[in-house]
Design a binder for these strands. Structure first.
Length: 481
RNA sequence: GGGCGACUGGUGGAAGUGGCGAACACACUUGCCUUUCAAGCAAGAGAGUCCGGGUUCGAGCCCCGGGUCGCUCACCA
């Protein structure tokens, strides 16, 4: 690559930050990193009807959490500021004036009502060509100008050639051609004075020197319109890469209804950003050495934009969770502790020592940071054993009570409350009572943890301490009568 | 409905220029470990590459036809 590439993403602040934004953002970021390029974050806030003021911050937060940083953007600035499209209306205005003057675009005075009616008729007639009927396309320049000057509400449309075809070379899919007859006279400027996506993006991509347009497949149909715009401005085309769309398990386009799509959700569940990044990188791309677990440094080292495959992948939460567990287990105890703390998963009032002790025992059992609460419940919460769980397998309630009584007696007498002693004590009690291992461990487990599964009991007993263990054993005994 | 794109096991996906027993990973099953769970280890099952033709000694990779799914036809992106 001769000159360093410049890439961008342009999310809209219209809701929770979307996993698709992260997906495309990751590829852009990695491509820029791999080639010494620049990654720009632009905010498309030109749709004032759906704009949400706090959504922009949410985007920043989510991308930063994921470790996807930008080199230029609304909050960090850069040589092409501003990066918020709502602040660039003068720039689009100039672009429109130029297109109008060159006869590449025209004002359309058709009302929304007329457009609605037109659509209605086309739908009723089951017409193949749905779209604007170009009524205003040939209004004389002077008339158009004077009507606009008199304040008549209008929009501006692109004057798409009536015949011929437009094609572009998608770097992942090859040449894609569309007949111009199938391309609508796209709206470029809305009556509220804001540009549409098509205009704003092409104008900004030109202004910001974007060399590679890496975006989702859903844009592929409108790419010819963008090509036409580049040509209208007399500018060279960037390289287009349309990456696949993420899917739900049923193969439909990924949606909130069928799959979590909010990055905030992943964060709040306790997914690790490095795991999510790793997982996203695996959708549509595979590492050359086949090793699927990797960090970002390795990803950007091996990532090649044109190695992205074109089949739309299913976002498999199960595999993500596995990957999260792998990354979680790769963390040191101190790091894990820090993450839990940073993300607010630790209980109030717990001392660092307590947390560290508990983590030493349950740490490797976590799949998500959010599992901490459940896994550590026996330590930080109250336990509510079930009577049935306190009865040894193939024994009676009275046997359970007798067993618990024996445990209380033996454990009360333990001198050093350490794992070795505790294990030996439980074992000698077991022999005295004449039960097999499951018969003593399961009731004991239920009594001290309120659950049928837990980390190894000697560790649990040591962690809980003599007082709590004995108190829980007594409560369990009383429960059995 | 028109246009465009995609199509390898349940899922992610390997297999640069046609030559395999169609990798590997997740999930699944079984076993080992073990007091349970998790992790780990071992083994196993699971597709002949959407379908039908064709070219070729040989096709997942090339050609033709069809199917299915997706996207798109907004003063939304």
């Amino acid at each position: 690559m001769s000159t360093p590439p410049r890439v961008r993403i342009a999310p809209s602040p219209t809701g929770d930050p979307h996993v698709g934004t992260a997906y495309v953002g990751l590829f852009n970021r990695a491509f820029a990193d791999a080639n010494g390029g620049t990654f720009i974050l632009r905010i498309d806030d030109t749709d004032r009807t759906r704009y949400q003021a706090d959504a922009e911050d949410a985007i920043f937060r989510a991308l930063r959490w994921l470790g996807i940083q930008w080199d230029e953007g609304p909050d960090v600035g850069g040589p092409h500021a501003p990066y918020r499209q709502s602040e660039r209306t003068a720039i689009y205005r100039d672009a429109i004036d130029k297109l109008l003057a060159d006869g590449k675009a025209y004002r359309c005075f058709c009302t929304p009502e007329r457009m609605a009616q037109l659509r209605e008729e086309q739908r009723a007639a089951k017409s193949d060509h749905q779209g604007y009927d170009r009524r205003c396309r040939d209004i004389a320049a002077d008339e158009s100008a004077s009507r606009a000057a008199s304040g008549e509400s209008h929009i501006v449309r692109l004057k798409v050639p009536l015949s011929g075809e437009t094609s572009f070379n998608d770097q992942l899919r090859g040449v894609i051609t569309l007949e111009n007859a199938n391309v609508d006279d796209q709206v470029l400027l809305k009556s509220d004075g804001f540009p549409t996506y098509h205009l704003a993006n092409v104008v900004d991509d030109i202004a910001m020197g974007i060399t590679h347009v890496v975006r989702a497949e859903e844009w592929i149909t409108s790419a010819p319109k963008h090509v036409l715009l580049y040509e209208a401005f007399g500018e060279p085309l960037p390289l287009f890469f349309h990456v696949p769309l993420l899917r739900n398990a049923d193969q439909s386009k990924i949606s909130k209804r069928k799959n979590p799509v909010s990055l905030e959700w992943y964060r709040s569940e306790g997914y690790l950003p490095e795991a999510l990044r790793n997982f996203l990188a695996l959708l549509g791309w595979a590492p050359p050495d086949g090793e699927e677990v990797f960090d970002y440094a390795k990803f950007k080292e091996h990532f090649r934009l044109d190695d992205i495959s074109t089949g739309a992948p299913v976002f498999d939460l199960v595999k993500l969770q596995w990957l999260n567990g792998v990354h979680l287990r790769g963390l040191s105890g101190a790091d894990l502790h820090q993450r839990l703390s940073d993300e607010g998963f630790l209980p109030e009032g717990a001392s660092p020592t307590q947390i560290a002790d508990v983590l030493a025992v349950i740490g490797e059992r976590l799949h998500l940071l959010g599992d901490f609460a459940e896994q550590s419940a026996f330590f930080f919460g109250d336990v509510t054993p079930t009577a049935a769980g306190l009865v040894p397998k193939k024994k009676e309630a009275a046997d359970g009570a007798r067993l618990l009584e024996a445990l209380i007696e033996q454990l009360s007498a333990v001198g050093e409350w350490d794992e070795g002693t505790l294990e030996a004590t439980v074992e000698s009690t077991r022999e005295a009572v004449g039960f097999n291992k499951p018969q003593i461990f399961m009731p004991l487990r239920m009594a001290v943890t309120g659950s049928t599964n837990s980390p190894p009991l000697p560790e649990v007993l040591r962690l809980l301490g003599r007082d709590r263990v004995l108190a829980r054993l007594r409560a369990a005994r009383d429960l059995l009568g």
